[in-house]
């Protein structure tokens, strides 16, 4: 006897957003069903990985993450180049850690130089991240926007408090905005609305729901993303139909469980594989919740996730 499947009726789809410029530009979004429910929908652009490059403070990374990049950890352009050429990176997530007012507090000029050098080294799309400091991010990313016109960077995190400065910069110099809100559906919608009112076009807008690592609040992110997708796909909420970017790598690798050595706690097993599993499993859950772009760090975790995406979207 045939079992009749229950089909979900979808009334909306995720908008397609193009990141970067030229022949290496990447299109994300476009799904018209819950993540990987391909028995009732289409996934024209499977989720992508953006590889992390930090411009400072990589000395605090766990050994497992330093090792594959030991030769380039203090040289962002060489690092980005290595990611593209050796690891096949399709996107770079450049973290301007150096500008942190509580850290090195580098000025905008030096940050702009770093971004320009990275852009000169690679032609794949680049997501440029500030440090979650409302004022400093606004100051630095605005200048990055101006100096890098034409590359269609992704600039973030753009928060409600600095959305005007950063939104205007992105519009003026034709970049894409990453709207960041603290794990909340309504706040996400509100910021999308504000950016829309400012003039940021829907095909230039990505959402960052704020990511918790495994064991550190991923369940909140997971459910908020599921609700984001529900709003977008079955509840006719057009403001929520933007692709989702999950900045998971720093959340995973800063936890004590990712850093612990096997000697510290034998029950936790081999350290490198544990860290890779934590990163890849966080990514897996975020994929199931609706991530379109995953910001990741370890090459082996990325390899596992790329294979998984291929298997699930085949």
């Amino acid at each position: 006897m045939a079992v009749e499947f229950v089909k979900q009726d979808y009334t909306g789809k995720i908008r397609e957003v193009t990141i970067g410029a030229g022949d290496k530009a990447v299109k994300v979004g476009g799904a018209n069903s819950y993540p990987f429910y391909l028995f009732e929908g289409a996934l024209p652009n499977p989720p992508r990985i953006a590889w992390e490059v930090w411009d400072a403070e990589t000395d605090q990374w766990p050994e497992a993450c330093k090792e594959p990049f030991a030769d380039v950890l203090t040289d962002p352009p060489a690092w980005a180049k290595k990611l593209v050429e050796k690891h096949g990176a399709e996107m770079i997530a450049l973290k301007l850690v150096s500008i942190d007012p509580n850290g090195k507090n580098a000025d905008a000029k030096s940050a702009v130089e770093t971004v320009k050098k990275v852009l000169a080294a690679v032609s794949v799309p680049v997501l440029v991240f500030g440090v979650n400091s409302v004022e400093k991010d606004a100051e630095v990313l605005r200048q990055v926007a101006e100096a890098c016109e034409g590359r269609n960077l992704v600039l973030g995190p753009v928060q409600e408090q600095n959305h005007k400065a950063l939104g205007a910069g992105a519009i003026g110099f034709k970049h894409t905005v990453l709207a960041s809100t603290p794990i909340d559906v309504n706040l996400a919608k509100q910021l999308n609305t504000l950016l829309g009112n400012l003039g940021v076009k829907e095909d230039k807008l990505l959402m960052d729901p704020t990511t918790g690592g495994l064991g550190y609040g991923i369940e909140y992110t997971y459910s908020v993303m599921e609700r984001d997708r529900m709003a977008a796909l079955v509840q006719q909420d057009e403001k929520m139909q933007q692709p989702l970017v999950c900045n998971l790598a720093p959340e995973v690798w800063k936890t004590k469980e990712a850093k612990l050595s096997a000697q510290d706690d034998p029950k936790m097993g081999e350290a490198k594989t544990r860290g890779i599993t934590l990163e890849a499993m966080t990514a897996t859950l975020l994929l199931l919740a609706g991530a379109d772009v995953l910001v990741m760090r370890h090459p082996e975790a990325v390899a596992k996730i790329k294979t998984l995406i291929k298997e699930l979207s085949a």
Partner: peptide, 20 residues
Amino acid sequence: LRGETLFPLLVARMNIYTDP
């Protein structure tokens, strides 16, 4: 069952089954 993969899995299970 190995610590390096079991621990993440058990944490994932705890997280997803936490009462929201």
